[in-house]
Design a protein around this nucleic acid. Sequence first.
DNA 1: GCAAACTATATTGTGCACAACTTAATTTCA
DNA 2: TGAAATTAAGTTGTGCACAATATAGTTTGC
Lengths: 145, 145
Amino acid sequence: MNESLHIENQLCFRLYQLNKSITKLYAPLLKEAGLTYPQYLVMLILWQNDQAQTIKEIGDILELNSGTLSPLLKRMEKLDLLKRARNCEDERSVLVTLTAHGKELKLKAKFIPAKLFMLTGLSKDELIHLKHDLDSLIDNIQQHV
Amino acid sequence: MNESLHIENQLCFRLYQLNKSITKLYAPLLKEAGLTYPQYLVMLILWQNDQAQTIKEIGDILELNSGTLSPLLKRMEKLDLLKRARNCEDERSVLVTLTAHGKELKLKAKFIPAKLFMLTGLSKDELIHLKHDLDSLIDNIQQHV
DNA sequence: GCAAACTATATTGTGCACAACTTAATTTCA
DNA sequence: TGAAATTAAGTTGTGCACAATATAGTTTGC
């Protein structure tokens, strides 16, 4: 009997489940900071670069298009996390900058990665290896997308 | 300098990206069958069990709640993939069964797992190991969710 | 036997994610 | 230089995903 269609055999189903589980793991930690996971990803980018980022740059890093980012950034602006303003050098683009509140939040978020790492139950070594395996899988797949 | 908040260091961001890439990889194959990825997951469950499944059973396997499944199954019923009917043994539950069209689709879908596996560029051995690593990570994480 | 607790599903509201399309600004090049 | 192509955002419509809540059917315990 052909078992290739059995759901429990599928790598992709594991990744789908894992992704959902991780979102749930983040939820309580991010709730303290008043963020959702995609909002947290945007904040990571803004925290690690001092300068203003264009929406295009954020989209390139997160691989999200404007249909996702436009409303996401609007909600974040409403939460006083960031400001959006047309770039006067090129009026097509919009520059995103952190507000004082947005910058402040970095102090709270600082401990999230370590807490998450602990919850995974992985060793440093296992983490490094898994990251590496996923990186090469991502590379392989991106070639075909 | 503390780099724990750097996005490229994060396992979770990789999983998030990988999940999106995989969905895009599936898209053209599933489009031929007229399915989305979550719809395909429901079909996998129905294909591998001959009997009718309750929504509860499907939700337990996919870890999806009724807020997701109710509209998802309604769309699938409209596509003539399945039928929903109250269980006369216990009127609280709804039994889901494949239509002729839904059963037929299995023949088309049969080749999807092999095609996907090819696109990942993994060896059989790498696949087995990665599945194993992800399984134990899922187990660890589920304990904390 | 019947009220309280429980169970299964549905509904509502919020937030992604993306394809397809629109608008406006900038660049290219004939 | 000015029309055509390109680029950056925004908009619209569809489809998940889930928390919170509502509803209806079933079971339990006194």
